[in-house]
Design a protein around this nucleic acid. Sequence first.
DNA 1: ATGAAAGCGCTAACAT
DNA 2: ATGTTAGCGCTTTCAT
Lengths: 326, 326
Amino acid sequence: MTTIRDVARAARVSQSTVSRTLSSPDMVHPATRTRVEAHAQRLGYRPNRAARGLITGRTGNLGLIVPDLSNPFFASVVKGIQSAARASDYSVFIADTDEEARAEVELLRALAKQVDGILLCSPRTPQTRLQEVGVDTPIVMMNRAVDGFPSVTVDNADGMRQAVNHLTALGHRRVAYVGGPSTSWSDSERRRGLRSSAETTGADLVDIGSFPPQFEGGVAAADLVLASGASAVIAYNDVIALGLMSRFTTRGVSVPTEVSVVGCDDIAMSSMSHPQLTTIAIPQHVAGRAAVGLLMSVLSDEEAESRQRELPTQLIVRASTAVAPT
Amino acid sequence: MTTIRDVARAARVSQSTVSRTLSSPDMVHPATRTRVEAHAQRLGYRPNRAARGLITGRTGNLGLIVPDLSNPFFASVVKGIQSAARASDYSVFIADTDEEARAEVELLRALAKQVDGILLCSPRTPQTRLQEVGVDTPIVMMNRAVDGFPSVTVDNADGMRQAVNHLTALGHRRVAYVGGPSTSWSDSERRRGLRSSAETTGADLVDIGSFPPQFEGGVAAADLVLASGASAVIAYNDVIALGLMSRFTTRGVSVPTEVSVVGCDDIAMSSMSHPQLTTIAIPQHVAGRAAVGLLMSVLSDEEAESRQRELPTQLIVRASTAVAPT
DNA sequence: ATGAAAGCGCTAACAT
DNA sequence: ATGTTAGCGCTTTCAT
């Protein structure tokens, strides 16, 4: 393994000069720099990040905690964060909590020492507990606004408003909502938006309950939706929505003729299903980049501890929505 | 931040004793141990992994490189690896190459210094180049057998044999194959299995070509499949298969009545589509655990450099396969 | 512009 | 069983 000393010896300079050549190149004589760089290159020198971190206090690592990687929504978020982090020369540690709230804080603590900052994606931990964790590592929340923390969220309530307006414009009077985890901030925000637009539009809102944010959750909810007499259903996310559609199809209920389905997230599968799923798009890439950017700015500026950024959502109308049955 | 010295001072012992208490507890006096542990606990002491790594040469980190996280197959593999790694108290760095072979070696080099071992999942880099990378960090290959490297693979050829036998038993005489990336080892293995079982069964094998391993790839291939006159099609993976089915449906071609579709991987969506997809199951969790286990054993034993482990595949017959049309 | 020296937090001989 | 000491590879004063 090539160390900085090897390069120093080869280039006939001191360690300090090699170090400077890499960190602040314009502090060394151009000739020296060239020589050092050549030798470093030749020897395949790669600075040891751990050693550097020991002294600078920076690890060059980011931590990312997500509830479930097999949810395509999170997979996309991860991809976005990954590429943004790499662009800033950061590596990312990833941890999947399997939707277990307990694991979140535990992982948070474990990760804290090894990274410069943590992105906590869609945390299921109660807000109060989140505020108590007391790790000194900066944390950026994604998909949840928490007082005292910078966060990147989307305007969930507005998304729901768009969905309800869309459905009522199509003549639907009774709309069901299949909720996600009760610990999900997004879920409660969406519920809030739904209630407000139900009032505005005069539509009947039927709460089907909370379901696991997986395909099976949608399958399980589908029969309740049909029994509710609703002509349209909005789901906590696309994965649930796909489960709903699947079960509807199985039961011979035609989508969108007999029941309209609206999802959330605009995962890739939404435009690949038959019929295609109408959905509220959450700009994952933008959110990912924004979160990394926010983290970077927290890492550089000392101030600005609690910047919160909210992104717009957008209704994507696809084939799945139709006029209410008569 | 609490360091080992703080704990040592508080417990009125030397740093070494604190260090020993944590790494080899039975080398210190029980009374001392209890006292040290109490103080460590109270002060919230957490050893600095970077500092430890600097001296032990171990980071406690694993690196994982995958072609595309948004492919549910890889998302599942990641989950499996994650939980296995966590069980051994390892953290995992993840990197997504976006299917770019060039990025693989680059990331490999960057990651090498920061981890104790690397899991290279479905590498697209040519085998010869892989053998040249010359990082001293142990590498375990997944879904590719490379001479000189330990690897975890599945019996792709046998999987294809099962698929072809299944289809011919149903009366199909002309079977199309929609391939994946030409740089994929799995793809060439599958092609090999297909050729051999085509010979055995006397079925006509039509090579449709290589397609990106995404939904769009399947959509693009679908028309070529229909034009080929095949009554059944096997796809490189489930994602492509779903793309095929989607396009078939769009064109009014009924699956499985008019054309049978078989995929690979058994991703979650396969049992959620309409009709459900017949597929070759790749045991992702087992593979993930096996890979981590292999890496661990390489890290402890000095010998055993080139253990290769091959897992069985299994045909999962679902609604999508039917008797050939007359 | 460059070098010498100190030390980040920790572990591992070596002493006691 | 415990303490002392010497570094791991690097950055960063402080001299020169």
